[in-house]
Every structure is written in structure tokens, then in C-alpha cells.
């Protein structure tokens, strides 16, 4: 599965994921509180500075910028009908700040690092009896099965096209039934592969101490 991460080795890329998320939360809240457009412009300049520092390639950020400019322009036009020029400026710059800052985090942080920081963020919940290990398991499972389900959808569409069915919604019912049935198999696999097991208490010892030896056995070189 492709992620939106853009490979790089800038100070922004190397900055720990939790720090970037914290900074993003901070910027997000600060720009919501500030109501003066010169201050907001200063924040925006800081963010653009971070983009320069991160050396995000132009071809990567242009589609986002273009979509954002159109979006902000439409919003600004709506604002114009109801408010003053100052409100238009405040709302537009605020919006630009939030979108650009959030995208910078997404582009410069690996998926695995973000998952790891989410794991850390939810870990206090274990004290409340929440099985947080299930949390990262669910993320991994979803990642694993997006391509599998997409493949199923394609097969169903092909089979229907072969029979001359072309309505876009008819493939949904078989796809959902297939997904529900898959969950049965995946649930069985999770159980039999030990996802539900309580961890073995003595660290470093495998769960099965001895293995039965059979006399008539060829050597297993695995």
C-alpha cells in the first residue's frame, strides 16, 4: 500500500514523529485562537519556512497547493458575502496554515513512525483494562486486507462483466458477503496463531518446552 510519505533526509524528516504531531496540534490550536491577520501571516511564513527546510519537491506539493488555493478562493468568496475584508483574510490564512502544516507532517513522517507514536499515545489506556496491542493489530490487519479486498472486488467485477452485468452497484452485495465470510477465516487464523494468547510469563522461553521425536523421521532441515 502506497503512503503519502515523501522520502527525504531533512531536519524535518529526522524530527521525531511525536514532536511533529505535538507541533501540529499546537499550531492548529494557536491559529484558531489568533484573530489578527498579521500574526497569522507570520505563522504562515514560519510554516513556509519549514517547507523550505524540509525540501519538499515542488512537483509533489503543487497538486495539493492548487487544490488548496481553489478551495480557499471559494471559501473567501463566500466570506466576502457575509464579512469584512479582515475576516476574509483571517479565515483564509488560518485555513492555509492548518492544511499546509498537516500536510507537511504527513509528507515527512513514515507510516511506521506514526503508528509507533499512536501506540505510545494509547498505552496509558492499558491501565484501564484496554487491550492496546489489539489496536496496532487492527491497523496491521486493515493494511493487509485493503489489497486483498480490492482484488476480490476486481474479480467479482470481471465475473459479472463476463456475464454481461455492468451495473456498478450489483457487485457490492457479493463483495460484502465475501468480506463477512473472510472475517470468519481471519478470526480463526488470529485465534490459531495465538493472537488471543496471554503472553508467556517467562521471557525468552518458547511456549512448548519439548517436541515429540518420531523414530521414522527424515531430517527436518528447516
Amino acid at each position: 500500500m502506497l503512503s503519502l510519505y515523501i522520502l527525504g533526509d531533512s531536519p524535518i524528516h529526522r524530527c521525531p514523529a511525536w514532536l511533529k504531531l505535538l507541533a501540529l496540534a499546537l499550531i492548529g490550536s494557536v491559529v484558531m485562537i489568533i484573530d489578527s491577520w498579521p500574526t497569522l501571516t507570520a505563522v504562515l511564513v514560519l510554516i513556509i519556512g519549514a517547507y523550505v527546510l524540509a525540501r519538499v519537491p515542488w512537483h509533489a506539493c503543487w497538486p495539493m497547493l492548487r487544490a488548496m488555493i481553489i478551495f480557499v478562493a471559494i471559501i473567501a468568496a463566500c466570506q466576502w458575502l457575509f464579512g469584512s475584508a479582515a475576516t476574509v483574510a483571517v479565515v483564509s490564512i488560518r485555513l492555509t496554515c492548518v492544511i499546509m502544516a498537516a500536510n507537511l507532517v504527513t509528507w515527512t513522517t513514515k507510516v511506521s513512525d506514526l503508528v509507533a507514536s499512536i501506540d505510545v499515545a494509547v498505552s496509558p489506556l492499558t491501565r484501564l483494562g484496554v487491550r492496546t496491542d489489539r489496536f496496532s493489530l487492527a491497523i496491521a490487519l486493515a493494511l493487509r486486507f485493503i489489497p486483498v479486498i480490492a482484488e476480490q472486488g476486481r474479480r467479482i467485477r470481471e465475473a459479472q462483466a463476463a456475464r454481461g452485468v455492468r451495473a456498478p452497484l450489483t457487485y457490492l452485495a457479493p463483495l460484502i458477503i465475501k468480506t463477512v465470510r473472510m472475517a470468519d477465516g481471519v478470526g480463526d487464523a488470529l485465534e490459531s496463531r495465538g493472537a488471543d494468547l496471554r503472553p508467556v510469563t517467562t521471557a525468552g522461553t518458547p511456549a512448548c518446552p519439548s517436541r515429540r521425536a518420531f523414530v521414522d523421521t527424515a531430517d527436518h532441515s528447516g
Binding site: 486483498v148 473472510m182 481471519v186 480463526d188 487464523a189 488470529l190 485465534e191 494468547l197
Partner: peptide, 19 residues
């Protein structure tokens, strides 16, 4: 029981859990 007995299913697509 689960740690003593391993189970290989018919369809490996459902058995592979991690990405």
C-alpha cells in the same frame, strides 16, 4: 492447546495477518 497445535488453513490469503 493453541501453542501445542499449529493450524494451516486452505486459503493462505486469510491466514497471513501482517502486511
Amino acid at each position: 492447546v493453541r501453542s501445542l497445535v499449529g493450524f494451516v488453513f486452505q486459503d493462505p490469503d486469510l491466514q497471513i495477518i501482517m502486511p
